[in-house]
Nucleic acid binder design. Structure first.
Lengths: 135, 135
DNA sequence: ACTATTTTGGTACTTTAGTATGAGTCATTT
DNA sequence: AAATGACTCATACTAAAGTACCAAAATAGT
């Protein structure tokens, strides 16, 4: 966020400078109008592309995970961690080994998680979690 | 494709017109240099955004499913159909009901599918299928 | 310090999932 | 006509997954 503000400020100042330079140069006759227009065009074309890249990436690609929804569903950290492991295709036994706890523990977590997500199977859990943007 | 070419042509011609008008107007003194630069800036900003929207959408969003890979793995139509149902979170019984076949049949398909995908669980199958861009 | 929540774990049980094997049907290809 | 491949189904089995119920630590909040 801080980075964005700094970048934006620098660009704004640069543009002001560009405007002034253009006007000055044209009235002095040191550069032609065509050149000025061309430069302005290229600069703003690039700014337009850059701007859109920023916004579109958030819009389409990085569908950021909704952490509020996770808490509002009452899903604990451990449960969420296990949900991620499930989506990666691991079995309860494997998840238990990875987190250094018993399979029983994983089963308990999974069962509680399913109730909170209102699902009956792990494949359903993954699908619903992705729908809710928590995965 | 044809649409793209036509659009591009119209834009090019419009831009040429804009350039000529600007130059003419400035030398005549009917509009100021500031106005011209502002118009050029806005127009190219918009063009930049539009251009990027076109390319980025193909780049990020439409990750089209790789049907060649499906056939190269030897996955049949029915198996793929079942893979989709699995990813939607349905049980073997439910899939059987939806496709009007027995659960046994689904089990056979699923088993064969897993061998072709080289996985052991349905959650793993879904994950791998998405990795391979076949889902 | 007390309370609430989270995390952990177990037992016992039911339900799905998954494997192995064999076999019949149907359409396509040779 | 015979072979091939895809789809179907069943039985019998093993292995996971999931539920129910209980309970003890550990953690965080008041």
């Amino acid at each position: 966020m801080k980075k964005t503000i700094i970048t934006f400020s620098i660009i704004s100042i640069s543009l002001l400078g560009l405007f002034q330079m253009s006007k000055y140069s044209i009235t002095r006759g040191s550069i032609t109008i065509e050149t000025t227009i061309a430069v302005i065009a290229v600069v703003f074309l690039l700014i337009g592309m850059w701007l859109n890249r920023k916004t579109l990436k958030e819009e389409l690609h990085d569908v950021k995970i909704n952490s509020e929804r996770i808490t509002s569903l009452g899903i604990s950290e451990r449960e969420y961690q296990i949900l991620q492991k499930i989506s990666e295709g691991y079995s309860n036994k494997e998840i238990g080994d990875q987190l250094y706890v018993s399979e029983s523990t994983i089963k308990t977590h999974v069962s509680n998680l399913f109730q909170k997500l209102d699902v009956k199977r792990r494949t359903q859990a993954v699908q619903k979690a992705k729908d809710l943007n928590i995965l």
